[in-house]
Design a protein around this nucleic acid. Structure first.
Lengths: 196, 196
DNA sequence: TACTATACATACAGGTTTGTATAGTACCAA
DNA sequence: TTGGTACTATACAAACCTGTATGTATAGTA
């Protein structure tokens, strides 16, 4: 029937378009609230193509989470590239979260939101989400170790809890002030365990 | 056709059964994932009765959030009834959260989960959720004031962020350890702002 | 006795969901 | 020129969704 339009040079592949569209809609509207029909339509792709690439909606959800994880680390690393001391890293981490919340429609952590929607305990997404969060905690622990904390794992965990709490609260309150407050608390927790 | 079975003495009304069932399923499976058909069936009630009482699914969601808020405060107040000093209140607050996470299937904060599912910004649920969280913050601020903190609002907010972060993290990790860690951090944040 | 409230049963409308089946088209490389 | 890849278009199955229409039965109250 209609033509399979030949993809011109700078154009993204169908798979790329599907994944980008899905990531956007899954985050902004939620996973259950976003149907594959809508994704296919917005990506200017047929449902057949979508299923050929991702197998199922759950497969697309997993791919979305993997892609989001990659994007997250790329942006985060770039944000922290100029830091030198551990204190600077720590502060900039909270600033990075705040900047992220200011850019575009903020709906909290996409991984946490996905986890609450994926009620099937064996969904492949849960492993990706867990890995993402574990990675952040390792990152923070490296800061704490570098800062010479006596118990780096514990301080890192406390920073992590502040970041998670600030993310949820900033989303609910439509404000970035919680990140500022969390940063303040994190700095106060740093010397107390360590070099007092 | 079949009888409208007369409710015997100790038996709950249809409305009560609907609300209890909905609260259970909305929390355990999520709001979008729970259909009104399922709720009616599990509550041993017809869909017509459900709609007569709550008007719409959104109406039922709002009623569920209101009821959950009431239950929450009742349990919380009871848990903190025996406390006398502000420090004791603070510690017991974190213990109460931990105990809550241990009882039954823990899926994080039902209000936060609901907020991420209710993508319509004008859904009546959002006001209830916001009120619930504001109430907790006020409670914490009262502790901080009683403890003689110089900046009670700010310390209370930091405790609040720790509680929120611990709740999300405990849910994702299927562990209550985050509450223990959060309590530890909260206590370290108490004297630092205040009576140092 | 008459009225009202509450709940029942059944059926359906109209839409959306995920996923598949079938057939046709455009391009590239051997 | 032939075959493979990547895609399009349309149509459908089967289940589920929210919400309503219609009629019936029971119990308390005036």
């Amino acid at each position: 029937m209609a033509a399979a339009r030949r993809r011109t040079d700078g154009e993204r592949s169908a798979a790329d378009r599907i994944l980008a569209t899905a990531s956007e809609l899954f985050y902004e509207r939620g996973i259950r609230a976003t149907g594959v029909n809508t994704i296919a339509e917005r990506a200017a792709v047929t449902k057949v193509t979508l299923y050929a690439h991702f197998g199922s909606k759950d497969g697309l959800v997993a791919a979305h989470l993997r892609a989001r994880d990659q994007r997250w680390w790329a942006e985060f690393d770039e944000y922290l590239a100029s830091c030198t001391t551990a204190e600077e890293w720590l502060e900039t981490t909270f600033d990075a979260y705040q900047a992220w919340a200011l850019a575009g429609e903020f709906r909290g952590c996409g991984f946490v939101n996905a986890a609450t929607e994926l009620t099937a305990a064996d969904h492949p997404g849960h492993a990706i989400i867990g890995g993402h969060k574990a990675g952040i905690r390792r990152y923070l622990e490296a800061f704490a170790t570098e800062a010479g904390c006596a118990h780096p794992a514990e301080v890192a965990e406390e920073w992590f809890l502040l970041l998670e709490g600030a993310t949820v609260t900033a989303s609910l309150r439509h404000s970035t002030e919680p990140f500022h407050r969390a940063r303040h608390a994190a700095l106060r927790l740093l010397p107390a365990t360590n070099r007092a």
